[in-house]
Design a protein around this nucleic acid. Structure first.
Lengths: 258, 258
DNA sequence: CATAACTATGTACGGTGTAAAGTGTTATTT
DNA sequence: AAATAACACTTTACACCGTACATAGTTATG
């Protein structure tokens, strides 16, 4: 139930683990396991069974150690979550990121990274449910940020404007992907499609007086008939287009390439 | 840890509870407690101690019944969460919602509802952590949706365009408020400010080679020096302005009021 | 007055994160 | 070569969670 936040496994330790900066201990028995093994197992669990399936016990079991041995490698579940987030931010193997930007078409570049980011969330929907303590400053996350920023490079934007633009697009994508991700998870976990759900509650809704919601009762039925619970792909593209139009205003004001 | 989704307390029961449609039972002892009492207690817990503090046991304790008596009133924890979400969507007492829109200034209207929505999340940050099974179709949520929609009324937008616009703005707000909400919770729960955290990790960051992230290492320091971890209020307003610019393109094309 | 319908409770189970203490292995120090 | 410190790993234990199940007490109806 609901992500936790605590942790208190000091941030330095987290960073050291994330950047592989834990020097191999001199004495004591060598461990057969690397931290990366635990993280990989945890990510697999999350991908396959959802974030709730990720418990320190199950991760330990997955890599073949006893429950408490988990804590030999990772101080905290909260730290594990941070490590998972950075691990998963690595570009998919052999993949699309190699694509170079087209210098003369910034709209295409921004749209591309936005769609990539959305696809990332859809690959690992549990990421949306993990509340991190602080920004994850791992190598893969940094790389993703860098790539995102690069889409706004060469437009004569100030550093701050570039950062704000990335933040805005990232925020939009995050918000927009949430519904789709939820819908997918619900369908998988409950075996009830949106249509079935809608039909199940329709009889009840007919008994409700919607007159206190005049605008909604004008809009809702039209939208509902055309799209059911909404077409999230279309909604995403609509919002993205609108965002790009807004960015264009700034870009043109700054005299960047069009 | 991480919101759950399941529940299977059938949707009809949830709706009945939300709309107060459970007819008072004829026989049996009268309950001194209303469902609303449980929900209110749960919301208080969430507001004061975070969503993790909301357990069926603690809610029961808060209203003075034994742990299992909770289930006499509410079938499921998942249903409780839905009820909490709708309860909290009610406009704050005596408040701002009374404000009428200015018919000739749609930008102001949209900005207003966006800021209101953001303020709502900041009042109840735990809402961001609750994954609902399906859209919450309660009276208060409906009212909020209606109000949001009304900001786009009279602009000659089609029903679908109105819905997509609301969705887009809501998605942006949702994404944008996430960081602030997190920052606040972390500060409260850990007693460590962002500045302290930053200073704690700075020595480590100096040992990291950032050359693989050329754009980020050009942008990051400038942004960092000026704003530390970022000024979320400014980021929000920047993105909102940009969104409004984008919406303006559509609104003007449709020949609505400017 | 018996019974059905209802509120409320107690007990129990399998799950969680992790504190604390103990066991055995290894590299260094004496 | 023996002692020791550092380490991986395990066992046990605790307090919490959601909730299934069985039970006890209360009330309106037949």
């Amino acid at each position: 139930m609901a992500d936790d936040i605590a942790g208190r496994g000091d941030p330095i330790k987290t960073l050291q683990l994330m950047w592989g900066r834990i020097e191999a201990p001199k004495r004591g028995p060598k461990s057969k396991l690397a931290v990366a093994d635990l993280v990989r197992a945890a990510v697999r669990l999350a991908d396959e069974e959802g974030i709730d399936a990720v418990s320190t016990r199950r991760v330990a079991e997955a890599v073949g150690i006893s429950p408490m041995s988990f804590y030999t490698h990772i101080p905290d579940k909260a730290v594990l979550l941070d490590l998972m987030l950075d691990a998963v931010a690595r570009p998919a193997d052999g993949s699309e990121e190699a694509q170079a930007f087209r210098p003369e078409d910034w709209r295409a570049n921004v749209a591309f990274v936005a769609r990539e980011y959305r696809a990332f969330y859809l690959r690992h929907p549990w990421v949306l449910q993990v509340a991190t303590h602080r920004p994850v400053l791992g190598p893969n996350t940094m790389r993703a940020y860098d790539y995102f920023l690069a889409a706004f490079d060469g437009l004569n934007l100030s550093e701050v404007e570039m950062d704000l633009s990335v933040t805005m697009v990232a925020n939009y994508v995050h918000g927009a992907v949430r519904d789709v991700a939820r819908a997918r998870m619900v369908k998988e976990l409950t075996g009830m499609s949106d249509d079935e759900w809608w039909h199940a509650i329709a009889p009840f809704l007919e008994t409700v007086d919607f007159s206190p919601y005049p605008v909604a009762s004008r809009i809702g039925p039209v939208v509902g008939e055309l799209y059911g619970l909404g077409d999230p792909d279309r909604a995403f593209e609509f919002g993205l287009e609108c965002l790009l139009d807004g960015l264009a205003v700034m870009v043109e004001r700054k005299g960047g390439r069009r």
